[in-house]
Design a protein around this nucleic acid. Structure first.
Lengths: 341, 341
DNA sequence: CTTGTTTGCGAAAACGTTTTAATAGTAACT
DNA sequence: AGTTACTATTAAAACGTTTTCGCAAACAAG
């Protein structure tokens, strides 16, 4: 019962040719009713399944999409994957997921190995280190080899390909406006270092929000975090020394950390200070109080990315190159952390 | 610059045979220094990479491990994946991840397609629906075909294969004892329906814990949750009507939900009621107050699973079958939710 | 009895590798 | 010159499919 059965085995066993077996299994009219039945019965009995690898080699396509994300332990990315899987599976594609662990080298290796025949196309969100290095040769090479690449969330402007993004600036502006509407006037911003594209954009949105309410931008209300592992301490030190009534954090973790710090400082959320984050993940939803935030609709991003990629794969016309950038709307989710009682 | 380059292209271009090219690239001594250099230079120039699919077909192995988990949006599973990836990558294996979405059908399809040549072995945690149906034919078939399968966390006893588990009973007992040691005497249990193996086992641990303190098991202090989506409401209704000083929840979400309910009921954690969960995820760590819990060392589970699988793949002796069950120690993590001030 | 058509099947090529065995060409030794 | 012994190269098979083309046999029509 060991080992897998192949067309060859069936052919030998039934004393017919491999081609006949193959055709019979596909129900070809070329083959007599009789033989067809015989072959099918035999195949079923021995649980024959065509070998995917052989098929991939023959067809020169794998029906597989490779997804490369910076971190797998991250709710936003997993929701994106969910969306990708949904449409990919509907269309008969497999999805394989690799994490770059925010490492440039791992990202390069992953791309290269999967570009070498194991996948038909990529969906990619680049690693921090890659953004910092600004070295995108692996991505360009892959595209030059004729493999479609779709970037999402952490994209790089210099590369010409399809992109799925969220309007980070507008999302951040909405978040800031939400605080302002609720009466906040002294709003702290907790953001990342500048080379992280999304942090940068969200900072811009924060400034625009203030601007629309004619509030001058105050450098001392901004904290840029480099070392995420140590963010609890940094945020508490930061908040200790400023007088505020609102906090906008560019991600979930910073928002949670801010809540914790505020509690230490004996301020209550939302009554003393309102807090809003970015990215609607597990934490925002379940925290007590639950956190208002800007949802990026990760699932939809994934769906769109997969649709775009599969469309590219199946309708590729020689010579015609066309690249789309899809902007997904963000959504403001109001929860307890910005609803003064 | 389009399309991938193959040995054939190189051979034609340099006007030598395919075999010569292949050998030259591998640095075979059979080939003259001269030719070797020429071929290598050419290959480098055109960025030649051997086609993985062709290699897999030839070698009849893919160097790929398929991981099937019930839910990808789940911190515990992602930590396990992290562990798997770590050792797999060290040993030159790829990891491909599929989620069954807790669906029996999707689990079957995933197994069948990847068993058909796309992977060398499986690491699996079964879907809820599969546990409920008790239909494991797909797993047995895969094993019968000679593919190694390693099960972790949600295992099934009837199937003979390698297994990586946590001592759920003992972990739960430790959690319960921790509450008891801290003075709790009326401890509620929030668990799952019985067919979920881990819920079942953790319930057993809870009972043992009580037993060791000579506290009689009280059915009215137990809530079994079927519909997870609605757990907030169920838990609040449950806690409203009982008098307790501790809660043991068999997972993170239930623990968080309990905290929320307690707050609604104007009880503070941990001063009025201590709360402990199971699974050390994002939520437990960041919640305010942070939650004491039982860590399952997901990363280590993943590492062990991958080691076991790769060992099987590389040292398979005909005729010898040997299966291990590895039990990973749990660890009690004390945080704010059980530390009365 | 030739010609044409249909039916059922098989041979072979192709996908891109690796590897074994074979084949030239050449140098060295009787 | 004839045998041996390398050296450098290539042909061919194999992995498991699918598919095009060709080939018989059977049968009908002229």
């Amino acid at each position: 019962m060991k080992g897998k059965i192949t067309l060859k085995h069936i052919a030998k066993e039934l004393d017919i040719s491999i081609s006949t077996v193959s055709k019979a299994l596909k129900g070809s009219q070329e083959i007599s009713e009789d033989t067809r039945k015989k072959v099918k019965a035999f195949a079923q009995l021995y649980n024959y399944k065509p070998n995917n690898i052989a098929l991939s080699l023959k067809n020169r396509k794998t029906k597989t999409i490779a997804v490369i994300i910076p971190e797998i332990v991250h709710h936003f990315f997993t929701t994106v994957i969910g969306g990708i899987e949904k449409v990919a599976n509907e269309k008969g594609y497999h999805v394989i997921i690799c994490s770059s662990n925010e490492s440039f080298d791992k990202e390069v290796i992953n791309m290269e190995t999967f570009a070498a025949g194991s996948a038909d196309g990529f969906i990619l969100s680049v690693a921090k280190e890659t953004q910092q290095k600004e070295d995108y040769h692996h991505i360009e090479e892959t595209i030059n080899q004729g493999m479609p690449v779709i970037m999402f969330d952490r994209i790089v402007d210099e590369i010409v390909c399809d992109k799925i993004i969220v309007d980070d600036v507008r999302g951040a502006q909405n978040a800031t406006n939400h605080l302002l509407r609720n009466g906040c006037r002294k709003i702290a911003l907790i953001t990342t270092v500048d080379y992280i594209s999304v942090g940068n954009l969200r900072t811009r949105g924060y400034k625009r929000g203030l601007c629309s309410y004619d509030i001058p931008f105050d450098e001392t209300l901004v904290l840029k975090i480099e070392d995420v592992d140590n963010c609890d301490y940094q945020i508490e030190e930061f908040l200790k020394n400023i007088d505020i009534d609102g906090v906008f954090a560019v991600n979930e973790l910073f928002a949670v950390s801010a809540c914790r710090a505020l509690k230490e400082l004996d301020k209550t959320v939302p009554d003393d200070v309102s807090v809003i984050g970015f990215t609607d993940g597990i934490l925002s939803k379940h925290m007590i109080p639950s956190l208002s935030t800007v949802s990026q609709h990760g699932h939809e991003m994934g769906e769109r990315a997969a649709q775009l990629l599969i469309h590219k794969l199946e309708n590729h016309e020689e010579g015609v190159e066309e690249y789309k950038t899809v902007i997904i709307d963000t959504e403001l989710i109001e929860r307890e952390s910005t609803n003064k009682s």
